[in-house]
């Protein structure tokens, strides 16, 4: 996962979250690696930065599990690219992971408690 620590507000991805983000991104339709990275960055309003070098092993992993399937195609600007598409099991996995993630977030919020007010 992204090991890059930035001085700004960008957040290091937690183990496993990249997979979830990729699956979520592909819900909109087939996309190539670069597009996925860009989409995640954009949707998180530049908070999440995807290390391109770790993106591909993640895609490879998801493909091996049968959650996404690849297809060579052409991008909007006419470049050949490998597009990834969500499979049926991938879709199911997304639902499962999303609810797990929500549980985790709620649980974390309970443990951490309300944001302390400064001052």
């Amino acid at each position: 996962m992204s090991t890059r620590s930035n001085p700004d507000d960008r957040v290091t991805l937690l183990q496993g979250t990249l997979d979830l983000l990729i699956l979520r991104t592909l819900l909109h339709g087939a996309e190539h690696g670069q597009g996925i990275a860009r989409a995640i960055q954009k949707q998180s309003e530049d908070v999440l930065l995807v290390d391109h070098g770790t993106l591909y092993p993640a895609l490879q992993r998801l493909e091996a599990r049968g959650w996404i399937k690849p297809q060579w195609g052409t991008s909007e600007n006419n470049r050949r690219a490998r597009f990834y598409e969500l499979t049926k099991t991938g879709r199911a996995q997304l639902v499962r992971e999303r609810s797990q993630w929500r549980q985790l977030v709620t649980a974390m919020a309970r443990v951490l408690g309300p944001e302390p007010t400064e001052g």
């Binding site: 597009g35 860009r38 391109h52 591909y56 991008s75 600007n77 470049r79 490998r82």
Partner: peptide, 18 residues
Amino acid sequence: EDFAQEVEAHLELEADQL
């Protein structure tokens, strides 16, 4: 080679966007 091509495509696409 297939993987190399995919990475190559990525770099081109990113460069286009930049």
